[in-house]
Design a protein around this nucleic acid. Structure first.
Length: 432
DNA sequence: AGCTTTTGACCACAT
DNA sequence: GATGTGGTCAAAAGC
């Protein structure tokens, strides 16, 4: 029974990469800030259905009417004592993703640089290390962030998100979610109580990523082993997925009765390009791993993970929205951001808000980098805007990956690679 | 001996 | 109904 349901759910979760790929290639995100504060899109007591976080995120931006300015969003996000939330919806030209929502030119996926969705994270929020899932989820601030959208989500929805979020905090504490807006036509079909006056251009659609980052110590990782996220996994299948250059491996948690599975895509050199988690662990992470003991926490993780969930059938009016929505967990991105030699480094001042601007003439892409106040190792990076130019070729080819000697570097390298592909020619723009 | 990985086959779903 | 695709199963092989 549960398996059947699981499969049904899983089928609704397909095509996670399409939205990501739509953000890549030559299509650059254009800043289109979330319709409302993040939390408002995540929780609501409304319709009583229980879509998963993917849909949460998807719905999050399903109403383009409520776009806020970047500053508004950022201000609201940073005001939270629990999590710094920055959300960005980037608009992708329909031409790059197909005329109907969710349809993506497979070339975009095939050509998708490794983990491109990480390269241009348009949105993210950070959960402070040490904050337990229960604390986080029980926190008024958290639910303030994810305050209800009237008529959007019900309690079960909250529970669903809570589970995934808890897992994110437990296992990796690094979540990046991403969803893709339906087409403008579809958007208009979405339930909305607000005017469409702030809709983006009809020829564009929005893509949203939400990221939670926590970075801990580096861990060695075998190219053939699933990333060490604190749990034990057993590989039960491998497939060559269409549109992907890399095989996808399927893992199950080896803990008895634990339903959690994950899918891992790796490049030829063993770098993790994508990890998708499904389900919630019914147990604590194994405690007998000394390398985790080194961190003083059994919940540390260096893995790049993705959470992918879905709502129940029929709960979402827009199926494509479901399919293209996802919650993604990634790790070490902020280190990539800070270490990107093409960009001005970030000073370790926790209070410093650094802004970067793409140096290409006419391109308005900006990047905001900020260290998490409660974790000096964490950096919150927010991309704003969409590049209107191709990636500079010289930069795109000039970077070599570092030796894949540990997971941290592996993931970071992967992201650096992506970032190099998505090269942002940025110069620091100090705003005081 | 027990566990994990590999891999072809099978199934369910979408088109 | 045929075909394509993703996910899972399960026997065999490896460690």
């Amino acid at each position: 029974m549960a398996d059947k349901e699981e499969q049904e759910v899983e089928h609704q979760q397909k095509q996670p990469l399409t939205s990501k790929s739509s953000t890549g290639g030559s299509s650059r995100p254009t800043i289109s800030l979330p319709p409302r504060p993040f939390g408002e899109m995540f929780f609501s007591g409304g319709l009583g259905f229980s879509p998963g976080p993917m849909t949460l995120v998807s719905n999050l931006f399903s109403d383009p009417d409520e776009l806020k300015t970047f500053s508004q969003l950022l201000a609201g996000a940073m005001a939270s004592p629990v999590a710094a939330v920055v959300a960005t919806a980037h608009q992708t030209p329909v031409s790059s993703v197909g005329g109907s929502g969710g349809d993506v030119d497979p070339r975009f996926k095939q050509n998708r640089p490794t983990g491109l969705m990480i390269a241009q994270p348009p949105a993210m929020f950070t959960v402070p290390p040490g904050l337990s899932p229960a604390t986080l989820l029980d926190s008024p601030s958290f639910f303030g962030l994810f305050s209800p959208i009237q008529g959007s989500f019900g309690m079960t929805h909250q529970q669903a998100l809570a589970q995934v979020t808890a897992q994110a905090v437990q296992g990796n504490t690094s979540v990046q979610s991403q969803s893709e807006h339906p087409s403008s036509t579809q958007q208009q079909q979405e339930t909305s109580s607000e005017p469409m006056s702030q809709l983006p251009a009809p020829a564009q659609r929005d893509t949203v990523e939400v990221s939670v980052y926590e970075h801990r110590s580096s861990q060695p990782q075998s190219a053939d082993k699933p990333a060490d996220d604190g749990y034990n996994w057993r590989k039960y299948g491998q497939k060559q997925v269409k549109g992907s250059d890399f095989p996808r491996s399927y893992y199950k948690c080896t803990h008895p009765a634990c339903p959690v599975k994950k899918k891992v895509e790796r490049s030829q050199d063993g770098q993790v390009t994508e990890i998708i988690y499904k389900g919630q662990h019914s147990h604590e992470p194994p405690q007998n791993k000394t390398k985790r003991d080194n961190n003083g926490s059994s919940r540390s993780s260096d893995v790049a993970t993705q959470f992918q969930t879905s709502n129940t059938a029929g709960l979402n009016k827009n199926k494509r929205e479901q399919e293209t929505s996802q919650v993604t967990t990634t790790a070490t991105e902020q280190m990539c951001e800070a270490s990107d030699s093409e960009e001005t480094s970030v000073e370790p001042d926790p209070k410093r808000r650094s802004y970067y601007k793409c140096t290409t003439p006419g391109c308005g892409v900006r990047k905001h980098v900020e260290r998490a106040a409660n974790d000096p190792k964490a950096v919150v990076t927010t991309y704003e805007g969409k590049h209107n130019h191709d990636v500079p070729a010289a930069r795109n080819s000039s970077h070599q990956l570092r030796p894949n000697n540990n997971l941290h570097n592996t993931t970071m390298d992967s992201m650096n690679q992506e970032q190099r592909v998505a090269r942002l020619r940025l110069k620091e723009e100090q705003i005081t």
